[in-house]
C-alpha cells in the first residue's frame, strides 16, 4: 500500500513536468482558473444536476490537451470518495420525497441531492488533481508567492516538496524491512510502530542538520531569494479570459436544459 502510494505520487509529479499546451500556461493563471471553477461548481444549489454537466468540459480538456491518463485520474478520485459518499448517502435515506419521473422510475429528492454531491465531488477533486498534474509544484508555489501568500509558508512548501520524496523513500525502506519480518498482522502493533516512527524522526532531524550545513556552506544567512522572471504571455491572458467566460456562462445559463428544450422542441 505504501509502495503504491509512493509510486502514484511520483507518477503524478512526473506528469506535471510534461511539456504540452496546458503545462505551458502560467501557473498563476491555472491556479486562479481552478479556483474560479471550484467556487462556481460548489455554488450550485443542493439539487442541481443538469447545470453541472457542462462543467465536465474543463477536466476533459485538461486531460486531453495535457496528455494525462484518464484511468489514473479516475482511480485517484475513487480512492478519496469514501467521506463524500459517507456523508452524502444519508440524503436519500433521510429525504425520500419523490420528485420526478425518469423513464418510469420515481426518483426521490434525496437521490437528486446525493447525485449532485457526487457530481460536484468528481468535478472539484478532478480540478485539484488536474491542476497538479499539469503544473509543477514549484510552479504552484511560485504562483502562490505572486498572489501574496506569506513567504515563510511558500518556502516551507518548497522544502517539504523537496524532501517529500527523499523521506518517503526512507520510510518505504523501513516499512519494507518491517513487512519482510512481520508475517501478516504481527509487527504492525502500535508498540512496534512507535520505534519505527521515532527512528525516522531522528534521521530526519539529523538530515535537517546536514541540510542546514549545506546551506551555510553556500553563504545562507536566513534569507531565501527567488528569481523567476516569468511574464504572462498573450496565450495566458486569452486562456484566463476564455475560462472565466465559459465558467460564468455555464454558471448563469443552464446549457443542458437549453439543449434539451431545443432538441425536444
Amino acid at each position: 500500500m505504501f509502495d503504491t502510494e509512493f509510486f502514484n505520487l511520483g507518477y503524478l509529479d512526473r506528469l506535471s513536468y510534461q511539456d504540452t499546451f496546458i503545462h505551458r500556461i502560467d501557473p498563476r493563471i491555472k491556479l486562479l482558473s481552478s479556483f474560479m471553477f471550484i467556487v462556481a461548481v460548489v455554488s450550485f444549489p443542493k439539487y442541481a444536476i443538469s447545470g453541472l454537466l457542462p462543467f465536465f468540459l474543463f477536466p476533459v480538456l485538461f486531460l486531453a490537451l495535457g496528455d494525462i491518463p484518464v484511468r489514473f485520474i479516475l482511480k485517484k478520485i475513487l480512492v478519496v470518495s469514501p467521506f463524500a459518499i459517507f456523508v452524502g448517502i444519508f440524503n436519500p435515506l433521510l429525504d425520500g420525497q419523490p420528485v420526478l419521473d425518469v423513464l418510469g422510475f420515481t426518483v426521490s429528492l434525496g437521490w437528486v441531492s446525493f447525485a449532485s454531491i457526487m457530481l460536484k465531488f468528481s468535478l472539484t477533486i478532478s480540478a485539484a488533481l488536474l491542476l497538479i498534474a499539469t503544473t509543477s509544484f514549484p510552479g504552484i508555489c511560485f504562483a502562490m508567492q505572486k498572489l501574496r501568500i506569506p513567504k515563510a509558508f511558500v518556502a516551507q512548501l518548497l522544502f517539504l516538496y523537496r524532501y517529500l520524496f527523499v523521506l518517503m523513500e526512507e520510510a518505504m525502506k523501513i516499512v519494507r524491512a518491517r513487512e519482510m519480518r512481520s508475517f501478516g498482522k504481527r509487527g504492525k502493533e502500535l508498540k512496534n510502530v512507535v520505534p519505527i516512527i521515532g527512528v525516522l524522526f531522528m534521521r530526519t532531524v539529523d538530515r535537517a542538520e546536514r541540510v542546514y550545513n549545506a546551506m551555510l556552506a553556500r553563504s545562507f544567512t536566513g534569507k531565501l531569494y527567488s528569481t523567476k522572471p516569468y511574464a504572462l504571455t498573450t496565450t495566458d491572458i486569452l486562456f484566463i479570459i476564455a475560462s472565466a467566460g465559459l465558467i460564468l456562462l455555464f454558471r448563469v445559463v443552464n446549457v443542458t436544459a437549453l439543449i434539451g428544450k431545443w432538441t425536444i422542441g
Binding site: F159, L160, E189, L190, I197, V211
Partner: peptide
C-alpha cells in the same frame, strides 16, 4: 516566525513536514 526565527528552523521545518507526510503513511493496526 519572522520576528523570532532562528535561521536553522528553515530546513528543520521543511524536513519535518516531509517527515509527518511519510510517517502518516506508516500505519498501524
Amino acid at each position: 516566525l519572522k520576528e523570532t526565527m532562528d535561521e536553522k528552523m528553515v530546513p528543520l521545518m521543511g524536513v519535518l513536514g516531509a517527515f509527518i507526510f511519510a510517517a502518516q503513511m506508516i500505519n498501524f493496526t
